[in-house]
Every structure is written in C-alpha cells, then in structure tokens.
Amino acid sequence: MLGYITIGANDLDALSEFYDSLFAEINVKRIMPGSEEHGYVVWAKDETATGFSIIRPFNGEPATAGNGNMAAISAGTPELVKALYHKALETGGRCEGQPGDRGNGFYAAYFRDPEGNKLNAYCMTTNP
C-alpha cells in the first residue's frame, strides 16, 4: 500500500550512517544514495519495494520527531527483530521497548534513532 515513508533529518550524514548500519541487518540497501547536496537518502530491498527515506526539511526549518508518529520495519523473525534493536542501540539509538511478544503473535522492539524518530522492528510469530 505505501510506496515510501520519509522522516526529517538535521544531520543527514550521521543519520545516514545510522540507517546504513541498521538496514544492513536485514539486507536493505540505499536505492537512491542522495547526498548532502541533494538533501535526501532512500533505502529499500529493491527499486520496487516500499522505501524508507530521510530528508532535510524543504522549508529549511529544523527537523523534529512527530509526536505519535512511528515507522515499522518488517524484520521477519524474532532474531532479526533483536538484531535491529541491538544495532540501533549500539549506533546511537535509544530504547523505547525491549524485544518481546506483544500478544497475538506480534513480536516487536521499539527504539528511537539519534534524532528522536520512533521506530519499531517487528515480525509475526504465529497466526492469531
């Protein structure tokens, strides 16, 4: 349903390094490398998959994390959920909820990137 999701970035280079490291855990790569000059970077499994992008705000104002906004990353297995969570914490993110079963087979971990954007890594472990 979604083509891509975009979040704001103040330090494009530092946040790009965070997401390069995080997405490497699930074999996701940059599909639009962008640059500081262009002001954006996009990652996805391939050019036809849903993308995740960071961008400097067009209006030149500082990027801020949205209250109530969250991007969810499909990890596939509890082991990959844990790997993403730990990689996020190792590379400057902070915990918003340790990996675990949230009910009905929904296994998830919650964290924020270095700029405060909330993310979730998840997988389904059983059919509800």
Rank of each mutant, 00 (worst) to 15 (best):
G68A: 07
I55P: 00
F23S: 05
I7V: 15
R56I: 12
E37L: 11
V42Y: 10
G76V: 08
Q98I: 13
E79K: 11
R102M: 12
I7N: 08
T48K: 13
L119D: 02
R112Y: 00
Y110A: 06
N104V: 00
S16H: 02
Y40D: 00
T50I: 11
L15N: 07
P78T: 11
A65I: 05
A75L: 09
A88N: 07
D46E: 04
A108F: 01
N104R: 12
T48N: 12
G105C: 06
D101M: 04
T6H: 00
A71S: 15
F23W: 04
N69H: 14
A44F: 09
Y4E: 06
G93P: 11
K29G: 11
S16L: 01
K82C: 03
E79G: 11
E36M: 03
A72N: 12
S35E: 06
D13E: 14
A72E: 09
V42T: 15
M124T: 06
I55C: 07
L2A: 14
T77I: 13
R112E: 10
T77F: 13
T125V: 13
G68V: 09
G100S: 07
G8E: 05
A24F: 01
D113T: 02
L80I: 03
A24L: 08
L119Q: 03
G3D: 15
A65H: 03
N67V: 11
V41E: 02
Y19H: 07
T77A: 10
F52D: 09
